[in-house]
């Protein structure tokens, strides 16, 4: 079979390029099976959903940390201070120092605040966290975060949960072109073809939650996204042909130059 290069984030290697979220599932059982079917190695969990005081918390308990990197996220934080506080609590409770940084002051569209995200990233990187910031598809912000030392950038394809696909395609293209850290397209991917599209463009990985969780059959959908991501990535490294608008003429206009 084909050997695929691993995804390297921070000092860790991953074979899978699909990250999955744990929100919105109808039961922990289905969530577990969907995670399994997705082939993922990185699972993100909203800290607000976890009862840190309860070692038997069913959300954390459902995720085998020997198999998956548990990536706590700060969803719900409105500013840098709240996000930092949440990340510290997770670490104090025994999570590894990894955090998906989400600062979303508006609880309706859940769009990330660039100013507060940058502030929080700076503090958390200094404290030794591997920071994966969720951002709008803003190439300059992506570079600024990378310079601070975040281990990825995670631009959104469309607002969280909208299934609209790569609405920010052009800006993501620039981010991919400029980035020195893995680019993980996060949010808005509604179909495996969207995930393929992001990977074909050269994204290093994608994160999917809603499209899997609210599908009629989340387990099968998780598998579909796995295949979509693999297909897109394989196509990207195989060298995709450029699309053309017209057919190539068999008697080119400059053919006479090669004549005798």
């Amino acid at each position: 079979m084909f050997e695929l290069p691993p995804l390297i984030i921070g000092d860790r290697e991953f074979q899978s390029r699909l990250l999955v979220g744990t929100g919105k599932f109808s039961s922990t059982m289905i969530m577990k099976q969907a995670i399994e079917a997705s082939g993922t190695e990185i699972v993100t969990v909203a800290l607000r959903r976890v009862d840190m005081s309860n070692p038997q918390d069913n959300l954390i308990g459902a995720i085998d940390t020997n198999r998956y990197l548990l990536l706590p996220n700060t969803s719900g934080a409105r500013n840098a201070e709240e996000a930092v506080r949440l990340a510290r609590i997770a670490r104090a409770a025994g999570c590894e120092p990894w955090v998906k940084l989400e600062v979303t002051p508006d609880p309706h569209y859940l769009l990330p605040d660039p100013v507060e995200t940058l502030k929080a990233a700076e503090i958390l990187v200094k404290e030794g966290f591997n920071v994966l910031p969720y951002i709008n598809a803003d190439p300059v912000l992506a570079k600024r975060l990378e310079e601070l030392g975040t281990v990825t950038v995670m631009p959104l394809g469309a607002p969280i949960g909208t299934n609209r696909g790569l609405k920010t395609r052009d800006a993501i293209q620039i981010i991919i072109e400029q980035a020195q850290v893995p680019v993980v397209v996060d949010a808005g991917l509604g179909a495996p073809s969207h995930a393929s599209e992001a990977m074909e463009m050269g994204a290093d990985a994608v994160l999917v939650n809603t499209a899997i969780a609210v599908a009629k059959d989340p387990i099968r959908m998780a598998k579909a996204f796995r295949l979509g991501v693999e297909a897109g990535f394989m196509a990207h490294i195989s060298g995709l042909g450029r699309p053309r608008w017209e057919a190539e003429a068999s008697s080119p206009l400059t053919g006479f130059l090669r004549g005798t």
Binding site: L47, R48, R49, D51, A77, E82, R85, L86, I89
Partner: peptide, 8 residues
């Protein structure tokens, strides 16, 4: 049962 955190 829990979808918020006093830590906020």
């Amino acid at each position: 049962w829990k979808d918020w955190d006093a830590a906020f």
